[in-house]
Structures are given as C-alpha cells and as structure tokens.
Design a protein around this nucleic acid. Sequence first.
DNA 1: TATTTAGTTAGACTGTATGTACAATGGACT
DNA 2: AGTCCATTGTACATACAGTCTAACTAAATA
Lengths: 201, 201
Amino acid sequence: MTPRPYQSKDRQKSSDAGREKIIAAARELLESDGDESFSIDAVARRAGIARMTIYNQFESKAGLLEALFDELAQRAQLTQLSEIFREPDPFRALDLMIEVFARFWTGNRRAHRRLRAAAMVDTELYAAIDQRNERRRRGLTEIVARIPPEHVMPMARDETVRVLFMVLSFQSFDTIAGEGRTPADVVPVVQQLTRLIVGAR
Amino acid sequence: MTPRPYQSKDRQKSSDAGREKIIAAARELLESDGDESFSIDAVARRAGIARMTIYNQFESKAGLLEALFDELAQRAQLTQLSEIFREPDPFRALDLMIEVFARFWTGNRRAHRRLRAAAMVDTELYAAIDQRNERRRRGLTEIVARIPPEHVMPMARDETVRVLFMVLSFQSFDTIAGEGRTPADVVPVVQQLTRLIVGAR
DNA sequence: TATTTAGTTAGACTGTATGTACAATGGACT
DNA sequence: AGTCCATTGTACATACAGTCTAACTAAATA
C-alpha cells in the first residue's frame, strides 16, 4: 500500500527516444509538400506510435509544435545567439546574426511557414513562439545600444530596433528568398539592407 | 416545360444586399477580438441568415474570405494604385504607395492577420491572395524601372524590387506598427526606410 | 521471484467545423 | 396562373482535437 516512487534511467532514455521520434515525424510531415494534412493522427502514424502517446508527451498539438520549434532552433545552432549578443562590435554582431537566422529560417522553410500558420490560429502556441521572438528583439536592442554615439544613424534607435526586428523575421527572409534561392543568395542582401538601416560604417 | 430564363433587377439587388450583409458580418467578426471563432456558422448567425446562403453566394469559406479581402481593398481605396503606378516621379510614387498600403493594412489589422492565417492553411485562398499581392510587385517593378539610370542605387534593381515588396507587405507594417501605433506613426518610418533602399534623391 | 510502477496502447466518445444533398418555401417575373 | 430561383431547414458525411478508460508491457524494487 505504501507508495514506492522511483525514477529510471533506462525508462527516461526510451521515453526521450520516443519524444525525438515524434518530433522528427512532425518535422518531416511539416517539411514534406505532400497533400497529407498535419494532424496528430498523421504524426502518430508516421512515428509508428499511438496517438495517445503524443498527448502523453506533449499535452496538446500546440505543445508538440512548441517542442518542434525548439528542435529546429537547436538544429540551426541558434544557441550561438547569446554569444553573438555579447560581441563588442555591433556591426559584426549584426552580420553574424543574419547568418544564423538565414540558416534557421531557410533551413526548414516549409516547416516554419506551417508552424507560423498554426501559431496564428492557436493563441497558446502564438504566445510560446512570440516569447522566443522577443529574445531576438532584446538581442537587437543590446546590439544597437552598442553602436557608438558619434556614429550617424538615419533613424532613431528605437525605430531602428523595430525595423531590424522586422528585417530579421521569418517573413522577411522568406519573401526576399522568393522561390529556389539559397541562404547564400539571401544573406548578402539582408546584410546590405541592414547596413543601410544602421548607416554605413 | 419550356425553359423561360430571365434576370431580375430587384432580385439581383436584394441578392447583392445579402452578399454585402454577409461580408460585413464576416469583417466585423474578424475584426472583433471576441473569443468567438471565425466559422461559417458564426458569420451566418451574425448576418441573420442561413448558413446555406453563404455557400450559395460564396461557394466556400475561401470564397467568402476572398470576397472580404477585395472589400477591404475597396474600403481602403486601393483602386488609387493603378493611378500611382503611372506617376512619372518614382520617388513620389513610392511615398504615395506607402500611404495607401498603410491605410489598407493598418485599417483592418486584426482582420488582415486572421485572413493571412486562413490563407496559409487553405491553398485555394492562398493562391487568390497571392495573385493580388503580385499586382503590388508588378507595380513596384514599374516604379523602380522609372528611376533614372544615372541615379545611384545601393542594390541591383531586381533585388531592390524584392526588398521593397517585403517592406510594403502586411507583415512589415504590422511589425513596425507594434501595438497601438497609428498609420501616421508608421508611414514616415517606412518612407524613410524606402528612401534608404532606393538611395536618397 | 513477486509486486509495484509508469509509460504505451487501442478504442470509444464528445464537440466543433467544413461541406454536400435535398426537399420545401416564397417572392419575383412573364 | 404558372415558372423560376435564391433562401431556408434538416440531415448527413467527413475530419480533427481532445478526453477517458481499461488492458498491456517492461522496468524497478523488495
């Protein structure tokens, strides 16, 4: 009758493996251009597990997509950002930031599109992703603050941050990339655009 | 037994009135921040008509939203655009274009957001709205082509068009506007940004 | 080894939504 | 009077999210 709680490493490991299998299936499904719609059922089928397991692991569809977003971020090494935000040279920091986000946004473009679409409908997911985007804004604020006062800028600083935030959004990269252009094509354009916004060095 | 086809003016008029009533209800519903979800049923209830009538008039949800998009465009007097595209001075044309789009995008912001969200899910609607956006791109192409060859531009012309297309998108205005800023606040920022992109006169 | 524990699974069920089919109604036209 | 046609109510098929539950399974512990 006495409860006998325990945690297991093997148990945790197989559970984690299951989680990753599900997220991978979700990513593949979002990335594929098949006409199959993105439903919990479809993810479960592709991962070869029961639908209930997904609810077990992720609570809801929003929870799954939130986890997927974070996995995409890890894949694109978005963790480098905190390092970049500490880069003393603000102009160099912006160039690096553009490279990282180009990798992120254009690496899994279809997935990001459908993720955004889902986020616009689901308020819970929207809040989760919005929070992550705000990190980008805070980083930009830091970087812009690091631009020396004697440097002549075409816009006020807070306006500059707002505009840069927009330029570094998924939408921006997606639109500028158009169809069939690689990150290598887009990065120099966005870097050039950014230089115009903060004022050439 | 013999078919006796006819058209009626009164009939047409009351039918058109019904159409407008439905579109108005759809617009109000999209614009309101209530938690009521945007369903055909909700639109019908608000318009005070039967759900079937909507399918009768608009074929599908996508059809209704497409019609709504066009109504929003008319309300914001987007028809002025064809005139602006013929403006000989390209710099002035850009400034005017920004004013028109600021009115369009920020006038019914919530509606545009949810319209975009719906379009990202529904391919039919996406194609319809994409087509309308392409008119914007063609207009920009014309305007940029009108910039005199001796004018020094920071980017190649085709790249300039792509970037301007992005800057004049809903997403751009929505992001730059942030929360609670009016078109009057946003227009000068976007105009300034555009001047940086095409090169100051 | 026997028992406990916790994640997995299949299936039934609810609720919401789109879209279709169809027959009845009633107003507008000839 | 007779015809046309948009509107309407109702029933129906389908898809999806999410909940509940009871059975199953494999690992952990005594």
